[in-house]
Nucleic acid binder design. Structure first.
Lengths: 344, 344
DNA sequence: CTGAAAGCGCTTACAG
DNA sequence: CTGAAAGCGCTTACAG
């Protein structure tokens, strides 16, 4: 017995009950007598019936969908999504599925009003924001989101007077661990690659950690070895080239992301320098690529699985009006060959 | 002027027109007088109004959403999604956005009925299937999809009597190019790593190309150098170890995916063999990692951007009842350092 | 435990 | 060019 597009009314007719009872039975309402419920469910299954989500959503004002917004200001229209954030997708989707939510993907560049449109159009109940963005333009969007009563959580730094909840790692600690390790390995002239302007608060925090580790070790960070770089491989290459061209000596590099670190490694190798023999390199993120480059990259790992799960739990908490708080996670240093040493 | 959750009726009241006219104006109907339309649209904008997609979808039986189903039989529950397929996500999302469709992500493992549920529940208008799957179990799902009148397209081989449309590359040609190149480089004992059972028709095709290139060169492929391996790095490592342990000499490897090739390279290097000095390696896919390993991996590139766009165009074509045909794309060899030579 | 009824917010023939 | 009305397929008070 097949019906083209069965509705709950079709099930009702077949089961000899009202459409309301079908609806209750399918939602496992305890109000429905167990035998009735079983009969209805078996008919539904046989007809390959699934509740029409549009209709249900229209009634309940719930889409059971979370929109995942990926943005990347430094991307400059590049088609590839930053692999670090992409690698979170599996965990996020899985965590959402466990809570019975679907994930809708959106890329920032595509929509002007992405930040409001999804929830206002009832396509999603809330948003997860993922990316290394320009904090200045970013802040405006967040304020607009808050003003429009949109529920959202951010994977990123926890910042004063920023609306919404954040899940992020302790970037100061991460920067400190990276620099501390290099200093312990005997490196004294550690270049810092990364943009620390107000645009990138997480990178600025990583820099603060880098400085903190120097202070603790009684070593003065060398201002001339600090180079601005946004999160692109090419900019890591350029940063190293400009350092080498400047003639400033350095024996290590702490790059604010793995992407930059990998570019830096390429440039060093192209100029005939050995890693870690001549220069040690440490990155940040531990993206999948980090363990595959040669030498394997020492880096500060963010626990993306935990972060992904927290992001989903938080947004679902907001949707379901439960108390939710921001989470600060402790990153961990992963020592590999690029800084030439065992963990101390 | 702000209204909590404005509806088209609110706009109508403010504009002094009927709700029907608001609906028409917002969909840019030419029936509506231009001035009226402009007035309505400006009010809508001011109120931050967006059409309720549930309501619209309920009326039109259209969700304007495509479900993207990622599966990976060899994944064995691994959390990470195959990076090759993941790298298509950006292109797919972008192509879909251009046609005004959203992308819903789903992982195969999460749902038993994934193949039918999405369209039946009106959450998506059609499906895109992505992954290297076990064709046997896979075929059942496809038949079920077809039986349920679900619209879908597959990224994969074009196979006789398989329901649905496929977008895929000419795997025979790809395998031929890989082996041809190695033979031209003077390699005679080319190991083949990959599963060529009926489970993996695309890999079997790549093997056919490998054999074809041998035939054309008058070289006999060596049966003992053919090793089964599913698409996991670890299995590439194991395949090479078993080859080395077997004592069979070989001077090149053609691995059926980059993932396997990268595992193979790791194993070779761990055993002290030089690439390409002792053994040349060629992979398949050109995933992002391929150009970052050392030595950089020569591989057969599938044009994922084109494939992504075709997939989206095809599924949208099916949804909108336009004629759609399967596409076979020609892959191209990308020569890098791992096979030690310039393109011939 | 079940049913009749209202209503979620749209789109679209139909009528003018 | 515009409006009144029907209806998409559900969920959920309300009544019994």
């Amino acid at each position: 017995m097949k019906i083209e597009n069965p509705t709950s009314r079709d099930i009702a007719d077949l089961a000899g009950v009202s459409q309301a009872t079908v609806s209750r039975a399918l939602r496992n309402s305890p109000q429905v007598r167990p035998e009735t419920r079983a009969r209805i469910q078996s008919i539904a299954k046989e007809l390959n019936y699934f509740v029409n989500r549009n209709a249900a959503g229209l009634r309940t004002h719930h889409s059971n969908t979370i929109a995942l917004l990926l943005f990347d200001e430094t991307g400059r229209g590049q088609a590839q999504i930053n692999p670090f954030f992409l690698s979170m997708l599996g965990y996020i989707t899985r965590a959402a599925a466990r809570l019975d939510y679907d994930i809708l993907i959106s890329l920032q560049q595509l929509h002007d009003d992405w930040h409001i449109e999804y929830q206002a159009s009832h396509r999603a109940d809330g948003l997860i924001l993922l990316g290394y963005g320009d904090y200045r333009t970013y802040k405006e969007k967040l304020d607009a989101l808050a003003a429009a009563n949109t529920r959202f959580v951010i994977f990123g730094p926890i910042i004063e007077d920023q609306p919404g909840n954040s899940i992020g790692c302790d970037n100061v600690s991460g920067g400190r661990q990276a620099a501390h390790h290099l200093l312990k390995m005997g490196r004294k002239r550690i270049a810092f690659l990364g943009n620390t302007t107000r645009r990138c608060p997480e990178f600025a925090d990583r820099y603060r950690g880098y400085v903190g580790a120097h202070d603790a070790a009684g070593v003065k960070p060398i201002e001339a070895l600090k180079v601005d770089a946004d999160n692109l491989e090419q900019l890591g290459i350029e940063a190293v080239n400009s350092l080498l061209d400047s003639g400033q000596a350095f024996d290590a590099i702490f790059a604010v992301t793995d992407v930059i670190a990998i570019g830096a490694m390429k440039a060093l190798q192209a100029r005939g320098l050995r890693i870690p023999g001549d220069v040690s390199v440490v990155g940040f993120d531990d993206m999948p690529l980090a363990s595959h480059v040669t030498p394997a990259l020492t880096t500060v790992r963010q626990d993306i699985r935990l972060a992904s799960e927290r992001l989903v739990e938080s947004i679902v908490g907001l949707i379901e009006a439960e108390p939710v708080k921001s989470t600060l996670m402790e990153p961990t240093l992963v020592v590999r060959a690029s800084c030439g040493g065992q963990r101390l």
